[in-house]
């Protein structure tokens, strides 16, 4: 879907990005993770040509982006900024309609699509005629997301989209983000410095440092098979929580006991991560949960059984 091939960006003598290559598959969530100044934002902005690369090439759908007119290219790529970048002189509706207007949609189509998105993002329709500064930070960020999604672009670039939000708002938005069907269909590249966020939202993570990719892989690969001390140190903080987030129930499937379905317990797909499964015990009063795999296989497990499987899995990883 997106292929970044040996891309470099030099600002004067400074190598902001130095020979970075990666690929993002269809509907995949790739996180560019790293500290400030590691080159992750520069890499992101080269994909919609906000910054022109010094060397290397980038392909979307197999087409070199340098061969397309930048304005046309950008209209096909959603972009979400940290500080939302909403136009303060436009109403919410006008803000969302910017790209449709550029694409010369008719008014009705734009209105219909806007209403649809407002509902999906849990935004009240009465917000449409007010100005962004009358909304809270979380609401503004949702409007920013709606603006990026309105024309349903296949690719979404997000530059620290939740960076300016407080923790409570952020975890709420994370949950919505994961639940939003619109996003499940999209190829997303997201920049963040927040490790927890990366583990929660990313299918794969590129950990960057000093303009280069140090390691790229799934959260579990980074966590359990770090290529060097830099990666290990980077993930040291709140490691247990990261592990819970990196491991999915499907990874533990073989380690869970065979048990018949218990009717009363709540059910989960095996695709969710361990963190979510463990959290569910807190909210549901049941002793056990049902986990379903491939629609037909179901296992019923308790909290202790899940933890036991987790330790077995970790031991196994460490010896591999």
């Amino acid at each position: 879907m997106i292929k970044v091939d040996k891309v470099s960006k030099y600002f004067g003598g400074v190598k902001a990005v130095d020979g970075v290559s990666f690929e993002v598959g269809e509907q995949e969530n790739l996180i560019l993770l790293g500290t400030s100044g590691c080159g992750k934002t520069t890499t992101l902005k080269m994909i919609n040509r906000l910054i022109e690369p010094t060397k290397g090439s980038i392909y979307i759908h197999g087409k070199n982006i340098m061969e397309q007119q930048p304005e046309i290219l950008r209209r096909g790529i959603g972009y979400v900024l940290q500080n939302n970048g909403l136009f303060p002189h436009y109403t919410v509706a006008q803000n969302i309609a910017v790209v449709p207007n550029l694409l010369k949609w008719d008014k009705q189509k734009t209105e219909k699509r806007t209403a649809e998105l407002m509902e999906k993002l849990h935004l009240d329709a009465s917000y449409l005629n007010i100005y962004p500064n009358e909304l809270s930070g979380g609401q503004q960020q949702r409007i920013g997301l709606a603006r990026a999604l309105v024309s349903d672009p296949p690719v979404l670039l997000m530059d620290e989209p939740f960076g300016a939000l407080d923790n409570v708002t952020r975890s709420k938005i994370h949950a919505e983000f994961k639940a939003l069907d619109e996003l499940k269909r999209k190829t997303i590249i997201m920049v963040t410095h927040d490790v927890q966020e990366a583990f929660e939202l990313g299918d794969r993570i590129c950990l960057m440092d000093k303009g280069k990719i140090v390691q790229s892989g799934t959260p579990a690969q980074l966590l359990f098979n770090p290529v060097n001390d830099f990666v290990k140190d980077f993930l040291k903080h709140q490691r247990l929580q990261l592990e819970f987030k990196a491991i999915k129930l499907i990874d533990l499937w073989e380690l869970l006991p065979e048990l018949n379905k218990e009717a009363k317990a709540s059910s989960f797909e095996a695709g969710i991560n361990l963190w979510e499964a463990l959290e569910s015990f807190k909210f549901n009063n049941g002793e056990t949960i049902n986990i379903s795999k491939d629609q037909n296989q179901i296992k019923t497990v308790s909290f202790e059984q899940l933890m036991t499987a987790f330790y077995q899995y970790k031991n196994h990883q460490a010896h591999e």
């Binding site: 930048p70 950008r74 790529i77 900024l81 500080n83 970048g85 909403l86 910017v98």
Partner: peptide, 15 residues
């Protein structure tokens, strides 16, 4: 003019 607003305008494909 706020740099983020300008960047958003560019990124949305305005000329």
């Amino acid at each position: 003019v706020d740099a983020a607003v300008k960047e958003a305008a560019v990124a949305m494909g305005m000329s």
